[in-house]
Amino acid sequence: MEIDPFIFRLSIFILSIFVGYYVVWSVTPSLHTPLMSVTNAISSVIIVGAIIAALSGSSETIFETSNIFGFLAIILAAVNIFGGFLVTQRMLQMYKKKKK
């Protein structure tokens, strides 16, 4: 009997939860704010879906409702991607060790 591809995706999902669990516990508490901003940035990989939605159809149908929702989602996700990574970078630059 063949295994439904959904099961494979579910396996990836569950394993990733475990990976996330162990990785996040090892994050030092002083970096919890950058952790939130970087998770924010990476969850905007949802832009992949937005691009597919926006680019569906030919050039005549480019501004159909579903495409427009795709374009809107691209803007939102792009704000998040650039904003999230850059603000994380800005924060991380500030963490300095004692000058010896």
């Binding site: 591809p5 959904f6 995706r9 990836i12 999902f13 569950i14 990733s16 939860i17 990976v19 996330g20 669990y21 990785v23 996040v24 516990w25 919890h32 952790l35 939130m36 998770t39 924010n40 990476i42 969850s43 990989v45 949802i46 992949v48 879906g49 597919i52």
Partner: peptide, 22 residues
């Protein structure tokens, strides 16, 4: 899951468990 996209599934799981731990 809807888009059958591994990057999104992995990221979603990571971010989801990260927020839950926090």
């Amino acid at each position: 899951f809807t888009l059958e996209n591994t990057a999104l599934i992995i990221t979603g799981a990571l971010v989801g468990s990260s927020g839950a731990i926090l």
